[in-house]
Write a protein that binds this DNA or RNA. Structure first.
Lengths: 138, 138
DNA sequence: GTAACTGCAAAATATTTGCATCCTT
DNA sequence: AAGGATGCAAATATTTTGCAGTTAC
């Protein structure tokens, strides 16, 4: 896994405290985070607007990918090395635990290809699985 | 397909103009709608708050199901007959057209079962496919 | 030094809640 | 008549935009 500074440099982004703090949060969390989570964890260290803009920049650069949700928030997950400039390789399954409420990227589980009705041409697929994660089964 | 009045009655909901109008919109649309779409199409006939409350009620009763998105809105799709009280049978694939921006329920395409890592116990799955729909291929 | 980034203020948007009134059964 | 549904007002929360000051390189 690349470190934060390397990630910023290779994406032509300047190294700022805000960006480093946000990247470090994601690396430490090991799970998907929403804007609100980040704002909460950074405790006013950075402006809310900066967080919005940073997340947007990271998505554009392919450092983060967006994970669909049904509760009008956007979740962000750290992309693996293969991602770059808009062309995301986030075709893995996302797992949402109904107990701890955490969302994890199951990097090793690829989204299966489904057969679509005649005329529908797929470009990208996403898959969400809800259930109980391995940490909550005890 | 059941009609609006029947749907309300079997779910123990009183028959009101607002609910009928919203249900009819969904039946006529044949695609997923967001709160904003509904508000726009009903042109101030009903209060925005009523629309919020109606959508929530319909989801609870299993008349509508929520479709995850990556743009902090919630899309709602009409459930098929099998749905009832919270226990949704919306395990079909959702298709989002990148040209016309419409989201359709592909009722005939079932979400495939994926093999999860040890310890993860699935309860429900959702799948989203982005691409070009059959109406936009000409 | 220059371009990029940030914070603040403010605007625009979206969502929730309480309450009085009206409608459905 | 009674309970549920609606509309309105207001409180909250969320997101976007502009601009001036600051920082990274």
């Amino acid at each position: 896994m690349h470190n934060s500074i390397y990630l910023l440099k290779t994406n032509g982004l300047s190294k700022t405290n805000g960006r480093l703090a946000i990247l470090d949060l994601f690396m430490a969390a090991g799970q998907a985070l929403a804007h609100a989570d980040i704002e909460y964890q950074l405790e006013k260290t950075f402006d809310r607007v900066t967080i919005y803009r940073t997340l947007q920049t990271f998505v554009e650069k392919g450092i983060l990918h967006q994970i669909p949700t049904t509760d009008n928030t956007i979740l962000y997950g750290l992309c693996k090395e293969a991602c770059q400039d808009g062309h995301h390789h986030d075709n893995h399954v996302h797992f949402i635990c109904i107990k701890c409420e955490k969302t994890n990227c199951l990097d090793e589980v690829t989204v299966p290809v489904v057969k679509l009705p005649k005329g529908f041409q797929p470009v990208h697929s996403a898959m969400l699985v809800k259930g109980v994660c391995k940490h909550c089964r005890s």
